[in-house]
Write a protein that binds this DNA or RNA. Structure first.
Lengths: 243, 243
DNA sequence: CGCCAGGTTGATTTCGCTCAAGCAATGTGG
DNA sequence: CCACATTGCTTGAGCGAAATCAACCTGGCG
């Protein structure tokens, strides 16, 4: 693994604090402690930060790039549990639950990650009430999303789930161009997108084909053009509509 | 809704504290505050404690009985997200995330529930560091289970999921009888079991039929006799085995 | 007694999976 | 620069699991 270790990176923390994340509430002493213990690294595409089953030794703060959290099933088939973007944190779940990692973290795009040792994190939790409360809030959100995803997986067809996924990703990767159509550039392979939906790459391919036939979306490489976002949104609503 | 309000029930808390739950760490003052604010109720079968979309006003502590947390989809189809047994807590997720309820809580068996107002709970979180930490831990566990369930739903066939469910329920409802076979009495309708697996009642029925044909399990009403638990466990292992 | 909810069964259909092949873009070594 | 593997994506044919729709039990219960 071609990784480079960079020491004493105070920057990880300052940017996060500025952005108003859970770290905003650290005291000067705690900031000092954080900086003394954090260690940052650059991972290249395809590197793995931790594997399913590994002991959980640190909390990982994603600075830049993109990381996929995946679980692998019996036949080597992969399911993508979540994506970690800059500002996101990896490994807090097993750290807090006192378990080992239940999923692997695979780097999709060259990524800088800062690792804070478990012991330091635990110390923060004991000394800083607000930090715990903030993390609680975050985790409650994530848990809600997890339930939602389960619900979708078992009750909605893949097509609706794909549209939903696109609409979610659009918030991060989408740009509206001149004529009102939506342009996205996804840093994901087809295989990864399929893994997010819990379907096979082939099924995704067919799905995409169908949607293209209807003229709603045009895919080329990892660029996607959605000519009539409203039409998709309407279909999504119809699919999700809970009365 | 035939519900009865019972005031000033100190017992809710004392039993929980004795069992070593997250509440064990409350100070005498906090216990006092808890008892002043909690209000307990008996719900009958079929009652609903809260609906999907309702504002989250309280934390609900299940004292006795059984509650199902369900989401309803477009066609009125229901998915059972989780079961709440005595000692479990309902509504902490939306409370902490500051969201409204994303699922409904439906009473399956006559249930006593103690409701602690949101405001009181928030006060505890601000005054008691340990409480927050304990809840964090619980929530981290639940989140792990949620991810696991998603993974199972998309990667394992219904049959394996059913066996898994039985093995999980067996911990709570199972008794080993004389000849080594396992007796369970599930307080759930077929429809609810199907909802837990994310399949239709008809599919469950066929599944059960198949397994009975193989002589592994005998179902009658809500009683289940598993003659050779080892055989099922072996199949489960084979199904789950992640290499 | 009829009604009704919960459960089962059968016939048919749909969706997504598997396996296999093909194609285009990208590397890689001679 | 060409021959060759490799990787990512697509396509087709066939299959299997579960959904759907409809009918039909079965055991309370008014």
């Amino acid at each position: 693994m071609k990784t480079v270790n960079i020491k004493g990176q105070a920057k990880c923390l300052t940017t996060r604090r500025a952005r108003g994340t859970v770290w905003s509430c650290l005291s000067p002493d705690e900031i000092e402690l954080f900086n003394q213990n954090v260690s940052c690294r650059i991972y290249e595409e395809g590197d793995v930060i931790f594997y399913e089953g590994d002991d959980c030794t640190s909390l990982y703060l994603v600075e830049s790039g993109l990381v996929a959290v995946k679980k692998t099933d019996t036949e080597g088939q992969q399911i993508l549990i979540r994506l970690a973007n800059p500002g996101d944190t990896l490994g807090y779940r097993p750290l807090l639950a006192g378990e080992s990692h239940r999923a692997s973290a695979e780097v999709i795009k060259k990524t800088k990650v800062c690792a804070l040792p478990k012991s330091t994190m635990k110390r923060f939790l004991l000394s800083n009430l607000e930090l715990g409360t903030e993390i609680l809030k975050r985790m409650a959100k994530v848990l809600g999303e997890a339930d939602e995803r389960f619900f979708e997986a078992v009750s909605l067809p893949a097509r609706i789930r794909l549209i939903h996924l696109l609409m979610v990703l659009q918030e991060r990767c989408g740009k509206i161009v001149d004529d009102g159509s939506l342009l996205m550039e996804l840093p994901l392979t087809r295989r990864d997108i399929a893994a997010m939906l819990g379907i096979r790459a082939e099924s995704l391919s067919r799905l995409v084909h169908d949607i293209e036939d209807e003229g709603l979306i045009h895919f080329s490489g990892n660029k996607i053009i959605i000519s009539r976002p409203e039409t998709l949104l309407k279909e999504l609503d119809a699919g999700l509509l809970s009365l």
